[in-house]
Structures are given as structure tokens and as C-alpha cells.
Design a protein around this nucleic acid. Sequence first.
DNA 1: AGCGCCCCTCCCCGAATGGGGAATTGTCCC
DNA 2: GGGACAATTCCCCATTCGGGGAGGGGCGCT
Lengths: 215, 215
Amino acid sequence: MAQGTDTSAARHRVLIADDHPVVRAGLAAVIAQEPDLDIVGEAENGELAVALFRQHQPDVVLMDLRMPQLGGVEAIERITMDFPDARILALTTYEGDADIRRALRAGARGYLLKDMLLSDVITAIRTVLRGDRVIPAAVATRLAEYPERSDLTERELEILHLVGRGLSNKEVAKAIGRMDETVKIHLKNIFAKLGVDDRTEAVTVALARGLIHLE
Amino acid sequence: MAQGTDTSAARHRVLIADDHPVVRAGLAAVIAQEPDLDIVGEAENGELAVALFRQHQPDVVLMDLRMPQLGGVEAIERITMDFPDARILALTTYEGDADIRRALRAGARGYLLKDMLLSDVITAIRTVLRGDRVIPAAVATRLAEYPERSDLTERELEILHLVGRGLSNKEVAKAIGRMDETVKIHLKNIFAKLGVDDRTEAVTVALARGLIHLE
DNA sequence: AGCGCCCCTCCCCGAATGGGGAATTGTCCC
DNA sequence: GGGACAATTCCCCATTCGGGGAGGGGCGCT
């Protein structure tokens, strides 16, 4: 129990991080209906999420991954660095397997999709509070679609990004200060990893998987 | 104050269409707080949105554009075809200027972004109820970034989509049953319209502007 | 030390790409 | 009828792209 005449089970403190006010309002409304869950803070970016975590040390965090200032993955990394037992649940729209992997690697205890039912979100929160992990079947399926091995190196991502901006091999080479043969080899390796055989498909596959982003 | 001894102004009936339960909950929570606004229905796809509009004929609709079954733009078209005076407000995340233009062309009275403040969403709803249009400065700015003339034809979109899937000119030609010289000319026209000079950038620019989508 | 991996350089070569110009058909609008 | 434009086919040609092979240096892990 807790303070005073509280007859309910232990109350759990929830922190929400999402840059969309509408989404924060929706999560807040749903969580407020649960007698054992309290919202202790709402963050609209990663920086604020980290600060509010330090301040309140909530029992669970619902973390969006695409946020301005500081991304959700980076926020998770910073939090788990200081609080390895932090229970963080990533909650985003599906935008490729890359984000899921990065979030879980950074220490997230689960990964939810925004098109899930609200009842499933609540269930997931309780599961994480219990100390368990949460990977919905829908998410697990998508992870299984791609071999874990298809990660691109920093250099490869850099080159692929420039290729997506329309640079030729020669222009990419100049941009990164290397010979254009080097760029060609990198692209060949990228094609092999992504299972494609031309630069355009490499870019679209990488975008679909969330390995690179536009802008 | 409610029914019976209603001293408030006329109550307005709102329909929400969004495929994310969390977003619907957020909008519902915010709208429920306004004494003059009532939610008369929630749709999770375009089909349902059209059906619920026919049934309730609400005073205003908040319409997400990316939904399964039937997209928001198509839903707007169907509704305004039968109800030219329907007040529909598109409310989505920004995913290129194409969606905005299509929504407004289909008859939307305004276009809101999901990262807007809740107070601005409420204000926009009231503005549309008054019969006025709502285009936030942030949206107008993005529209102005691109010339209206850069629309692609059906054929061009079809080709660009196939190119994005990694098909060569020859493969595209076979896929659409035309000579590959034809494909080359189409691509040349596409480049000119989009202001790029290679296929990869054409695809990424089209994706960024929402002219084509992955899958 | 050995292995794997990342990163870089250089060679050859056939196929694909992009830019130029010129032309026909059809449609829709004025 | 004229103008604009979408869609189609054809020509030539320089450049780029992608696949092949053959290396070397560095770093981390075992």
C-alpha cells in the first residue's frame, strides 16, 4: 500500500514522452482511467524525457522514438546508462525494423505500435511493471523478416544517404574525400547486405527498413 | 449545463476518423472537455468514416489521411460528393505536400498537423464550424515550397514507383508493355518536373513529397 | 598469431543511364 | 481550328553503373 487510506494495490508512476500533443493526451486519458497508474510527467522531446526521468524516477516510461531535439533511442540510452533498471517501453508507429532493434539494444523493455488497442497498451505497461519484456507478435514477425546481419556500417550508411540525395559515385567520392572505386565497392557491399542490385532499390529498401531517413 | 436547461451556445457534433486508437482517445478527451462540442462517432478507417458520416451527418469531421481500407482523401471525396457542405478538417502528420493538396482538392476545409497544440486544434474546429477555412502558416509555408505545376501524371507515378522498386528501364518497359525508349522519356520528364537529374533522387524527392509511397 | 571485418585502391568490361533532337497520336480546353 | 499536354516511338552518344578479380592496412576478438 501507500500513504493514507489507500486501499488499492501499489500505484505505479508513468512518464510519457511523445512530440505530438494529441498522442500525449490520448495516453494520459487512458492511463488516468486506470486506478493503479499515475502520470508523473509528459515530455515532448528526448532531452525533456531524460530530465523528467531523473527528477521523478518513474516506474515505467512510454517513449516515442521520433522526437525533435533528442531522439527516443538516444534518450533511452542516456536513461539506462544511469538507471539500468529503468523500465522503458517504446511506443511508435512502425517505420522499419531498424528502430525496433536500436530501441531494444538501447535498453527498452518492450516495443509497442501506435495502432495497437488501448487495452493492449495497458496490458503491456503492467507486463513491463512486473519486470517482464513485451514484444507483440506483430513486431516479432517484422523483426524476423530481415536477417540480423544486414546492418550497415557507418560508412555505408553515409554513402547510401548521399546516394539517396542524388549524388553520383564520383560526387560521393568527392564528398567523403575518397576515390570513386572505393565508393563502388561500398555500394557493392551495401547491395549484398540489403539483397538488391541497384542504388535506387538500395535507398528505398533502406528507407523502408528505417536504416536511413529523408532529410 | 447540458440538455434540457441548455444555456450554452448550439452544440456541435464531431466525427473522428483515425486508425490509431491512441490518437482517437486523445482527440476524444480534448473535445469532450469543450462544452459546445460532442463526439458522435469514431472511425478507424475511411469506409467507416463515410458510413458514420451518412448516419450522423456531423457538423465537422477530423480526418486522418493515412488509413487502411480506404484512405482519408478518398473518404473526403465520397463524403463531399453527397454532402458538398460537409466541413472536413484533415489532421495528419506532415508527409509531403502531395497529401495536403489532394485533401484540399477533395474538399477539406482545412489541414492541421498532429504536432500542433491542442488549443490550436480546438480553435481550428471552431473556425471550420463558423464556415471558414483553416490553413496554418506552417502548412502554407510548405505548400509554397513547391510549384503547383510539379504534379506527375498517372503514367509517370506508375513508372517512378517501379523504378523505386529497383526495376531497370527495360524491366519497367516490360512491366507496362511499352518500349524502353518510352520509359526513358517519361523519366526525363519526371526529372524536369521534380528538379532532379537521376532516378534515385527522383524517387527520394517523390517519397519526401508524398507523391509515391513505399509498398 | 590468426581470423574476420572494415576500409581503401586499382584493373577490365558490358550494360544501363541520362541528355540531345525529332516526330506522331489523342484529348481536353479555349 | 488552334494550343497545350500526355503518351508514344525512334535516332545518336558520352557518361555512369554494376560485376568481376586482386590486392593492402588496420582493428578487435579469440
